[in-house]
Design a protein around this nucleic acid. Structure first.
Lengths: 356, 356
DNA sequence: TTGAAAGCGCTAACAA
DNA sequence: TTGTTAGCGCTTTCAA
């Protein structure tokens, strides 16, 4: 078979076939004025026969916007943005708006070029998670094009922004570990989402400072999450002297990788090593030893971001900055519990202690 | 702060400020005719000063397309589409094209409305994974709008289609289990991606038929992948009489959920129960007992689909149907191996046997 | 309720 | 190399 057919018919064709005027068809399409039933039927038949598809893109000419919003984020080891995107989509779907997802892969040049294309497409707006501590220059074009903008992360006051308190998240994780008596803790960082990781690290340090120098936080950074990476990571952690009794990982993916590696080496979790993750991905609670983690309300971030963006288009809109709070979810990887609801009274993998 | 600013300046403004004609600015923007250095500079300054952003959406008027392609898929328990999308994006990025991702959530109405919006946006093309065995009616609009179309899945000959041999995948999995001596096997199906799951099931049956009635394939369907779901699932599997010695799950997420639950119950994998998954997601090899699975070349599917789509736009294009083949990846969840590269000589979780 | 006509921002053909 | 001009498909007055 051959290539796609040429562009098809226009509103003018429809008008001609239906025997009405151009403006009437336009009115019909936009449902903006009453149409007599007879005319309506004739127009609909004409549209049917001609396989006419209105060109929405042209609305942008008369001040309208493309029925799309951009979503510009970077990959990270956790499928963070998937959940956020789901939230965004759930809000905008009812408005007939569609999601343009742009993965910057952490490259600034990708980010700028995506933002540029979005502006030129005249999208309704964009939700951007900047990978860098850069100026707002890349967003100027978006603004100038008339698009709305919501930044995911901290930003200045004349922009809508939704951020998450990564720092507090780090604090909660460490406070939990300290409460359990851990003082030798190792922080697992990298790769991806550098800014967030640093915030989590800073939060961890903050939580530890009242106890220093009695408590210590050492740090190891992962190169990736392959089998080799995690084996190397475990080697590094276990080689630390004195050996830490707890791990705080900057992402669940990382935490689970290490957790599984520890179990493979017959190291008891949490008995010999407690593990805390970050993000509360679905796999966290499904792990062999369910993972204690700091939950990030990803879906809610998506919902809020989309709502803010739609609000930007309304007259009288006032920019808002939201700061969402973390939530510690305690599971077996830090504190063994008897779980009456689950079958299997014994569990060698996690060596349960009596419930406290 | 207040709402977004109005739409900004036009090519006409640029021409006026730069002191050149409208057509010259257009030529500059499209890089279609030589421009004298002096004029170029003046245009660029005008663009800068006015913060002019060309309206790409209007290209669709002169037969052009929106610099976007649609990606219409449904959620499934495995983040299948994330990898496919990555492949697509990697191909189209260099062409300055952007990905519009539409999650149908398995609802036919969402699918049709997304396809409609895409057609009206005059996207360059769309990659669609139909959730249903429906006619091609929903795609008519896309075609009529002049967009390219690549279907992910089996489709008729006058469309580009990329499909994956799910059935063969099911066969490979079962053949592997039979080779290892398993005859009592249970198939784990649902939820999400119903069509693929059935194909995998059929493949499994096919592989088993030479051995029937000596071998049996029973089936259990999961309602979801929560902790409760998987516990219930494990209960069902373990209650089967005679108890199966192997599980073939229709997705890795499902397989890992059950695998972890079995380990929690101190059931040895693969000793007491072998487990095979499907898709080869990243977590499969990172499990406590690395998961044997059927790999689906998701990233490659994305690459191919995007290439086919771009090819559709070229004159003389001929529709193609590709069938990608599965690949069995054997790991410890079916066959214990000593892994010299890994530390930790013993491993209670998987009870290694000597390498065969 | 419908039609006629002007014009949106831009491209493309042609003339200069 | 640049300017002029006629549209592209559609929306939006304004009149009828």
């Amino acid at each position: 078979m051959s290539a796609v057919s040429p562009s098809g018919s226009t509103i003018r064709d429809v008008a001609r076939v239906a025997g009405v005027s151009l403006g009437t068809v336009s009115n019909y399409l936009n449902d903006v004025k009453p149409i007599s039933p007879k005319t309506r039927v004739r127009i609909e038949q004409a549209i049917e026969n001609l396989e006419f598809v209105p060109n929405r893109a042209l609305r942008t000419m008369h001040g309208g916007r493309s029925p799309a919003i951009g979503f510009v984020v970077s990959d990270s080891p956790d499928p963070f943005f998937v959940e956020v995107a789901r939230g965004v989509e759930d809000v905008i779907r009812s408005a007939g708006i569609v999601l343009v997802s742009c993965n910057t892969k952490g490259k600034q040049e990708y980010e700028s070029s995506y933002v540029k294309v979005l502006a030129e497409m005249r999208v309704t707006g964009a939700i951007v998670m900047p990978s860098f501590e850069h100026s707002d220059v890349p967003f100027r074009g978006l603004r100038a094009s008339g698009a709305g903008l919501v930044v995911l992360g901290e930003w200045d006051d004349d922009t809508c922004a939704i951020s998450f308190d990564d720092r507090l998240g780090g604090q909660l994780a460490i406070e939990h570990l300290i409460e359990l008596g851990h003082t030798d803790i190792v922080f697992l960082g990298g790769p991806g989402g550098e800014h967030q990781i640093e915030q989590r690290y800073l939060g961890a340090l903050t939580a530890l400072s009242p106890f220093s120098p009695d408590a210590s936080l050492r740090r190891v950074d992962a190169a990736g999450v392959t089998v080799q990476d995690r084996a190397f990571l475990a080697d590094q952690v276990l080689a630390l002297d004195p050996r830490p009794t707890a791990i705080f990982a900057a992402s669940d993916t990382l935490a689970l990788a290490v957790l599984n590696e520890l179990l493979r080496r017959d190291i008891r979790v949490p008995g010999e090593m407690a593990v805390v993750g970050f993000n509360n991905i679905a796999a966290a609670q499904l792990a062999v030893v369910p993972l204690t983690t700091v939950s990030v309300p990803q879906y809610e971030m998506g919902i809020r971001a989309a709502q803010l963006l739609l609000d930007e288009l309304r007259p009288g809109h006032v920019h808002q900055q939201l700061l969402l709070k973390p939530n510690l979810i305690v599971r077996e990887s830090t504190r063994s519990v008897a779980t009456p609801g689950l079958e299997g009274p014994t569990n060698k993998a996690s060596r349960r202690r009596p419930q406290d």
